[in-house]
Design a protein around this nucleic acid. Structure first.
Lengths: 256, 256
DNA sequence: ATGTCTTTGTGAACGCGTGCACAAAGATGG
DNA sequence: CCATCTTTGTGCACGCGTTCACAAAGACAT
């Protein structure tokens, strides 16, 4: 049990590095698990292992929040859960709208982790009139004509876009015009937004392509040194395609 | 934005920086759009705008691949599409398995962008016997008993985990043991894998929490304009959170 | 009280990624 | 062939993030 604390209100709490912010939810998840197991305190080493990061990094991350640990003991789990929750803004309620109730949108609406931590699905919105009124995850779908009104009535500041690529930018513009200032974009498009609006994107296709790159590299390393210079452009494809066979998909354009 | 993770010290991917690799799919998408509009060449400035990045960054990224541009003109679109595709390993076919066919898994299976670029859903796998044989996105679901056999028969090296959190690590272990070396994890858990296996994670909850942090910060800055003047910068955070109104689930541990 | 032992918090060094700014390369026109 | 103009490719400097390593802080035993 943690004892006497001389915690000052963290004089430098402004300016938490972005990389640290991105890890706070990870720590919070690990801490919540510990809390449910009624673990009173945890060391940076243990918590770091649970969160899958380096312990020095974790300690430095926490140092941006303040001095919340006790030397020789570790961190009080409950206290830290609260501090991180507060820092992330999870002690308040965030109404969220999901726009585009297709396969993905429906899956997101059903996602349990949504409501678990301060986020509340205020409305599901779709452009298809046939969807209107139909309940998804227990919430009736609203037509996109009502988008602005829904945003305003519920004080929504976070929007999730799960529309097809072509509809994403128009939807985004409407969301922003209606007052949304944070957007989570699942559509495979680059959104352009005015200053002051945050956009984060989740892109399955990009993630897979990054994995494919590393996968190819691994395969190429095993298959000995297939020297692949930059100059011999034409037939450098033999590198790692042993079982490839013909593919008629290669662009014929090959400038000299 | 999805956050990539788990990189061992040796991240020298033939000299291409990780940050560059992560942007290549973005360039590829923009280039494909240009290609479909039969645009023959594009300048770094134009392409950068389309991809939502800085033009200097784009040129530096391309410089890691080689000298594929023509000064005074720009880049040949078709040629660049091919070069990037090859670099990312998209000129070959990547069989992929999706494990966990719930709401999310089904949505992923239906996702069009999957097959569009070298990725082929080799199998859908679920632990629920009632799901077995049932077609999802035109593909019959297989039971997880057959996981190892499916991996081996199809030469799968990329696995997608869309199971509940509790099942993710065991599934991951089985995938890795069966030969999978790249994993895309949608379950809200930190996966531990042996060296040589790449893991990328996509976590809706984390993305929302990051947005919430920035959202709270924006709200706090507006309120700071009408500040009382007692504690202008640092301690205003405590005051700001105190005015968040009643929220019932604050941990009791609240040291003064 | 004093010493020992554990663990935090952080100064400092290092490496990666970004953006600037410009010389070199090549196209284009006369 | 020469001059001019456009755009690439990159050297360089800077800032952020990571990691190391250790002094300081506190718990705990004697």
């Amino acid at each position: 049990m943690a004892t006497g604390r001389t915690h000052r209100p963290a004089t430098r709490s402004r300016g938490i590095p972005e990389a640290t912010v991105a890890r706070l939810p990870l720590y919070l998840r690990a801490l919540t698990a510990l809390s449910e197991r009624s673990v009173p305190t945890v060391s940076s080493e243990e918590l770091a292992a649970a969160a899958g990061v380096n312990s020095a990094k974790l300690r430095k991350d926490f140092s941006y929040l303040g001095s919340y640990g006790t030397r020789g003991v570790g961190y009080d789990v409950e206290y830290l859960v609260y501090q991180i929750s507060r820092e992330l803004g999870l002690t308040q309620d965030w109404p969220v709208v999901i726009v585009g109730i297709g396969n993905l949108g429906a899956a997101l609406a059903n996602y349990g982790g949504f409501a678990s931590r301060g986020f509340r699905v205020a409305a599901l919105i779709d452009a298809d009139p046939a969807m209107a009124g139909k309940p998804v995850a227990g919430i009736p779908v609203r037509h996109s004509d009502d988008l602005e009104k829904i945003i305003e009535d519920n004080g929504v500041s976070i929007g999730v876009i799960a529309t097809p690529a072509g509809a994403a930018q128009p939807v985004c513009d409407r969301l922003v015009a209606a007052g949304v200032t944070s957007i989570l974009n699942f559509a495979p498009t680059v959104l352009s937004v005015p200053d002051g609006v945050d956009v984060r994107k989740v892109d399955l296709s990009i993630e897979l392509q990054i994995l494919a790159f590393h996968e190819q590299r691994k395969a190429g390393e095993e298959a000995a040194a297939a020297s692949d210079g930059a100059a011999p452009v034409a037939a450098s494809r033999d590198a790692a395609s042993a079982d490839k066979g013909p593919d008629g998909d290669v662009p014929a354009v090959m400038p000299a």
